[in-house]
Write a protein that binds this DNA or RNA. Structure first.
Lengths: 147, 147
DNA sequence: TCTTACATAGTAATCTTTATAAATAGTGTA
DNA sequence: TACACTATTTATAAAGATTACTATGTAAGA
């Protein structure tokens, strides 16, 4: 299941003339396997055991490559580091203000707002970005206890 | 007109126990007057003439204060600096991928997606964030010339 | 006016991300 | 399989944005 997505991703990279290296493979695997919306540093730390000499720059380089090929989506919240999400199907994100957890949820793609924006502003629209913010169930529970 | 919003903002700050200083006043004025979605550095540079000794930290401190009181919204795109927008009425933003220009456009507030997200994930929803990306008319023209 | 806590200035420090250059290692081809 | 070409990695420096810190200054109420 995950392996299928991985194979597809590798093939997609090959078609773009991107070479496969062990580090690249590992970063990709991590993104496919974990659904944790990791930061570059998360990935770096997670793979430190297998690749003690891997550079942080390698993580960033590869994330950029994946992004350029369209395999990965970069998300940037406020002050913190960017988070990276392996693109599977169309979904939006909801983010916990307290603990930072990111959860996917499905919702029909908002094509209409793109059309309206284009009409009102004269922009040629490429894409949009939508995120919902709030408090996750866990943090809600914590808050009522502490209170 | 702008003065009314300014007065209201100052009053709102007073109610939150925030002191008014010349620097704070100036930063607030700038945000109300300009509709340019400035970065912290934009503001710093714009006020350098009037406040030659003002620190960048002061700009950041005040922007945070304004944000905490709800007067200002912080927007963060990819790698660049955060941009700050004085909150007037409900509107969304469209951003040019080429030159970075930010333009407001009006669209009915998407309350529904908040409700759906809450139901699907169990989050207590607070707000959402929506941005459209594309190419502004100016950059579209430039691109067809260069081509 | 006096007092006190908050704000500012100035600077150092932190954090994230990118740039650079030399060393390394994929991948197609002979 | 060996070679050559070039992308990739590593290591480190550097850049850029934002925050932390501390002494000094100042707004605002008594």
């Amino acid at each position: 299941m995950g392996s299928e997505m991985l194979d597809h991703a590798v093939q997609s990279l090959r078609e773009h003339g991107v070479r496969m290296t062990p580090q690249r493979q590992a970063i990709l695997e991590y993104l496919v396997t974990e659904h944790s919306h990791p930061t570059a540093d998360d990935i770096y730390k997670a793979l430190a055991a297998r690749f003690p000499n891997m550079s942080v720059a390698t993580v960033y380089n590869n994330l950029r490559v994946f992004k350029d090929v369209g395999l990965v989506q970069e998300m940037n919240y406020g002050d913190a580091s960017s988070r990276f999400d392996f693109v599977t199907s169309k979904h939006y994100h909801i983010i916990c203000d307290t603990c930072g957890k990111v959860v996917d949820f499905n919702y029909p793609v908002l094509d209409e707002i793109e059309a309206v924006a284009a009409q009102l502003t004269g922009f040629k629209v490429d894409r949009h970005r939508l995120e919902v913010y709030g408090t996750c169930p866990t943090c809600q529970a914590d808050q009522s206890h502490t209170h």
